[in-house]
Design a protein around this nucleic acid. Structure first.
Length: 431
DNA sequence: TCTGGGGTCCTAGGACCC
DNA sequence: TCTGGGGTCCTAGGACCC
């Protein structure tokens, strides 16, 4: 289906994308004002990759997702502040930004930790830009986080408008494509891969097979024809570029799959350590599963060695378990996971990563229990919810499963973490 | 020595049904 | 000698996103 809309737009649609600038780096700066004039970078888990960069680092040509060790010297030489990722902080700051935004429109969709769509259809067009600049400046004042805003009739265009804001450093950080008198001029200044939804693969195909190099070229393409070469997804992107809305708000749906995986802080070789790690990941995954009032009937356990070590022989494997009755009981999952590990663990490889995925997820309210399976009982829900509430009140590992282990040698590396400025009483900044 | 983690949607093809 | 047409469900894999 090309699109599905339940909404009647009596007036020209105006959709705004609000995006926090260099979000993680900006969060770090809020509580370290001295860093405002220094290059700041944030690392991924295990301090592996650079996943957020302040403008100074972008200007210096540090690429997104670059391995830290390859740029360490360069970063040191330029006096950059490099920190481990502090998700407790970013999550809390994100909530503050979203709460502030929510005051300005009844129709908001949180799209990611640092982005939200605001539907401004029907707002007074004469004052829309001014109103938008007010939102941007108020978010900055209330949270300390700088944001940019792109406004357009469709989401794909709003994304471009937002990009333009940052690219041209538009004063007020608002760009409204609006009726788009100069839309062609505008689209011409974007490479095709800058269009939202066009990734590396498609960009390459578009260039080599169809001589489409810019957003304008794509705008001029025949959406029907392109659908036959690619898919309905491509058709929607083209139509959206042309100003025809095809993408609408997603209702907040329960996740259809839940993944919990981590690279180890150090390589591990013992099965007992794999069991500890997998158990720990499962505890997190099951907790998320229960938090959305769901159960799962499928689980995949995976382990692997390092991906980028040409001298070492790669080994990776996975095992899938199907439960006859959907479950959210961590005990059942761990028992099954240990059997799965038995089937895929090999002695010898130096493992670098392990993970679990839960799938075939359904609502806990509609589970059909098995007459003959005594393990799965409604009582298990009661036990799990007690565990969840204890941990929510007294901290993550207040109560845990023996198989998780106590002194986890494999735990991830986060050597450069800043404080939990907003989520821990002991780490609140003193003024 | 050192390279993250968590998601979604779409399509093609096989198995199976009447 | 000759064997239809239409449909659903499931899975793997490919593409994309932040």
């Amino acid at each position: 289906m090309l699109y599905e809309s339940s909404k009647d737009y009596g007036q020209p649609r105006r959709i705004a994308l609000v995006d926090c600038n260099n979000f993680y780096a900006s969060c770090e700066r809020v509580f370290k004002p001295a860093w405002n004039h220094l290059p700041v970078g944030v690392l991924s888990n295990n301090d592996g990759c650079i996943v957020a960069r302040s403008n100074e680092l972008k200007a210096a040509g540090i690429p997104m997702g670059a391995p830290y060790f390859k740029f360490k010297d360069q970063l040191e030489n330029m006096g950059a502040i490099i920190v481990s990722s502090n998700y407790a902080l970013y999550g809390d700051m994100s909530a503050r930004v979203m709460d502030t935004l929510a005051q300005y429109t009844p129709d908001m969709e949180i799209y990611s930790i640092d982005e939200a769509w605001l539907d401004m259809t029907g707002f007074n067009t004469a004052t829309l830009d001014e109103y938008a600049r007010q939102i941007v400046s108020n978010v900055h004042q209330c949270t300390g986080i700088p944001v940019s805003m792109g406004i357009a009739p469709t989401k794909v265009l709003a994304k471009l408008a937002n990009r333009l804001c940052k690219k041209r450093n538009i004063p007020g950080q608002v760009f409204n494509i609006g009726g788009a008198a100069h839309i062609e001029q505008l689209l011409k200044s974007f490479a095709v891969e800058e269009v939202w939804g066009i990734g590396r693969r498609w960009a390459e195909q578009l260039k080599t097979k169809h001589h489409i190099y810019t957003a304008l070229d794509l705008y001029n393409a025949d959406s029907h024809q392109m659908r036959s070469h690619y898919s309905v997804v491509m058709q929607r992107i083209i139509l959206e570029l042309q100003g025809v809305p095809c993408l609408f708000a997603n209702d907040i749906k329960p996740k259809q799959q839940i993944i919990a995986s981590r690279s180890f802080g150090t390589r591990i070789t013992q099965k007992s350590e794999i069991i500890e790690a997998i158990s720990t990941h499962l505890v997190r995954a099951c907790q998320k599963l229960r938090a959305q009032n769901s159960m799962a009937s499928g689980m995949t356990v995976s382990i692997r060695t390092a991906a980028f070590q040409p001298k070492e022989k790669y080994y990776g494997n996975r095992a899938t378990t199907k439960f006859t009755v959907p479950t959210a009981d961590t005990r059942h999952m761990i028992a099954a996971a240990i059997r799965a590990i038995d089937s895929i663990f090999k002695q010898g490889p130096r493992y670098a990563k392990a993970g679990v995925m839960l799938f075939d997820i359904s609502s806990a309210d509609t589970v059909q229990y098995d007459l003959f399976d005594e393990q799965v009982t409604p009582e298990s829900n009661a036990l799990m919810s007690v565990i969840d509430s204890i941990n929510s009140r007294y901290g993550k590992k207040a109560i845990f499963f023996g198989s998780q282990g106590i002194d986890n040698k494999w735990a991830m590396k986060r050597d450069k973490m800043t404080q939990h400025f907003t989520t821990n009483w002991l780490e609140i900044p003193n003024v």
